[in-house]
Design a protein around this nucleic acid. Sequence first.
DNA 1: CGCTTCCTCCTACCTGGGTAGGAGACGGAA
DNA 2: TTCCGTCTCCTACCCAGGTAGGAGGAAGCG
Lengths: 208, 208
Amino acid sequence: MIRVLLVDDQHLIRAGLRMLCDAQPDIEVVGEADNGRDAVSLAARLIPDVVVMDLRMPGVDGITATSRILADRPGTRILVLTTFGDDDHLYPALTAGACGFLLKDAPPADLLDGVRKAAAGDSPFSQEVLRRLVQRAVDARSDTPRPVEGLTAREQDVLNLVAEGLSNTEIAEQLHIGITTVKTHITSLMTKTGSDNRVRLALFARGA
Amino acid sequence: MIRVLLVDDQHLIRAGLRMLCDAQPDIEVVGEADNGRDAVSLAARLIPDVVVMDLRMPGVDGITATSRILADRPGTRILVLTTFGDDDHLYPALTAGACGFLLKDAPPADLLDGVRKAAAGDSPFSQEVLRRLVQRAVDARSDTPRPVEGLTAREQDVLNLVAEGLSNTEIAEQLHIGITTVKTHITSLMTKTGSDNRVRLALFARGA
DNA sequence: CGCTTCCTCCTACCTGGGTAGGAGACGGAA
DNA sequence: TTCCGTCTCCTACCCAGGTAGGAGGAAGCG
């Protein structure tokens, strides 16, 4: 039997979820909360397997509640169920330790499936959210590999030192060349990398 | 009926998949290929709904084949099915346009489910892969500027923008304050953080 | 041999970054 | 109330950073 705690500030949503869950032979709703603070204390007392958590709530929000519950009992599976799947909700929730993220417009079967998956150690995500997740992961990847084709050996040397935060003078000393030479290389680096100031150049070199 | 093209260099795997699919009323295997080149030409001729694609193959690999098939017919759903779920396989595959990524140790039911999901426009992922995906997305988030002790709120604002590579003028515009104010904050930031130039300040903010 | 690329360095110039020191306004704490 | 910290902005100054353009030497290549 999967013990579930429902957290949502809207009474109707909780009622709907409870009805849905109670109709299942393997899922049992052991408690409800309409705000983050109650959610934390209830979770501590009831020790549910899965917490179905809304994010936007009065007082303590869902993100904070998630962190606190997990700080207390790290094994708890917290499944976020919310209306908004944008980045500002998704990533804080995942960072806080939520194991899944479903949108409220998901069909009931997906919700129940999500609860079961969460309890089983899996990570249920709505398709829409999943797409966003993949996109970000791919983006993050395509940012890192900066082969920086077309840089000469010397330019690469200078770029590395710029990335370390050295001044032109320091770079000149380090490489045993004149400061004007350093400037020459840097100007060329800027145009080649499309940076218009030194910090951006440094960030570029670091793949950021 | 979902028309499927199987691509894998191991005959046994193909045989197993074919048997599995043929037992389903809604899935039809329309062709097989044991290398990337054949996969591309077969896909062009058979126009399958879903391509189940292995990555490690002799000759043209699965990533390249995926790119080529999608270049020809962008609507094709390509579901990667491979033994290895590490980053070096996962991200290139997603970048190439694969819609899902399953591991070969997945239970048969998950495979069939994956094919159906892929055909329906969803993105099936093995749990293990999904975990990795979430991790990376979260990581990519968390390497944004980190808060530093002892800084005033406004200084923190300025520091974050310095860390992004903005110039003083850009920062002033962004925060709707004067450029001299920005300079004041930056001077204070430099002394507080012990940086003696702007790049080091930016690196400090990024925790480097 | 010319040709090209790269590395080196130069002058001259301008702008942005950074320092020094001061000042007015505001809000909270003593 | 006074005092302190923060945020705001100022002037004035200096210098590092960045641009423009040119030039000589070394190495590789057709």
